[in-house]
Computed example of a mutant assay.
Amino acid sequence: MPGPANDPAVCALNYVVSEGTIAFRTAPGVATAAAVDSEVAFEVDHIDDSTSQGWSVLVVGRCRTVTDPEEVRRLTASAHTEPWAGGRRTM
């Protein structure tokens, strides 16, 4: 549970990378939606236990809501945009 509005929050989510854009679905009123119009950090990690190797990628940028209908169609047609946890995410 995130703390006060200015505290960082870590949220697990499904995402897609398409044409240089990192996109995820969210819903109004949840922590990820509160990040709109804010500077955010996005991190992806992978560990391969069999080789004792791994990697991390960290990207920092501005979070925005996608409103262009063509961009929404392009992003929702990509893999991994359906949330594993279920539930409706309209943003």
Rank of each mutant, 00 (worst) to 15 (best):
G20H: 06
V60G: 11
V30S: 00
W55M: 11
A34M: 01
V36D: 00
G61F: 04
A9P: 12
R73Q: 08
E19V: 02
Q53N: 15
D37W: 01
Q53S: 15
L75I: 13
E71K: 00
V44S: 11
T21Q: 04
R74G: 07
V36T: 01
R64W: 00
R73A: 12
P69Y: 04
D45C: 08
E82L: 14
P28S: 06
G29V: 08
S56Y: 04
V59R: 07
A34L: 02
R74A: 13
A23D: 04
V60A: 13
C63P: 02
T81P: 02
P4Y: 09
A5M: 04
R73N: 09
V57N: 06
A12D: 05
A34S: 02
A9G: 09
F42D: 00
T67F: 03
V10F: 05
G20A: 08
A5P: 10
A77Y: 12
R73M: 05
L75F: 04
V40D: 01
A9I: 07
V60T: 15
A85S: 15
S56T: 14
V60C: 12
V40G: 01
C11T: 12
R25G: 09
V10G: 08
V17P: 06
E43I: 10
M1E: 10
V36G: 00
A31K: 07
R88M: 03
T67L: 04
G20D: 05
T81I: 07
A9C: 10
V60D: 14
G61A: 13
V17N: 12
T51G: 11
N6L: 02
S50V: 12
T81M: 12
G54T: 03
V72I: 15
G20Y: 06
G61Q: 12
S18K: 02
I22K: 07
D48T: 11
S38M: 08
E70Y: 04
D37N: 10
S38P: 01
A33E: 00
R89P: 10
D7F: 05
L13C: 10
E43F: 03
T21I: 14
P4G: 14
P69A: 05
I47K: 09
I22L: 12
V44H: 10
R74Y: 03
R74V: 11
N6V: 02
D37I: 02
L58R: 04
R89D: 09
T21W: 02
T81N: 04
T81E: 01
T51P: 01
W84R: 09
G54M: 03
E39S: 15
S56C: 13
P4M: 10
V44A: 12
R25P: 14
G54D: 05
P4S: 13
C63G: 05
Y15F: 14
G3R: 12
R73L: 06
R88S: 08
D68Q: 01
T26Y: 04
V10Q: 08
Q53L: 14
T90R: 09
A34P: 00
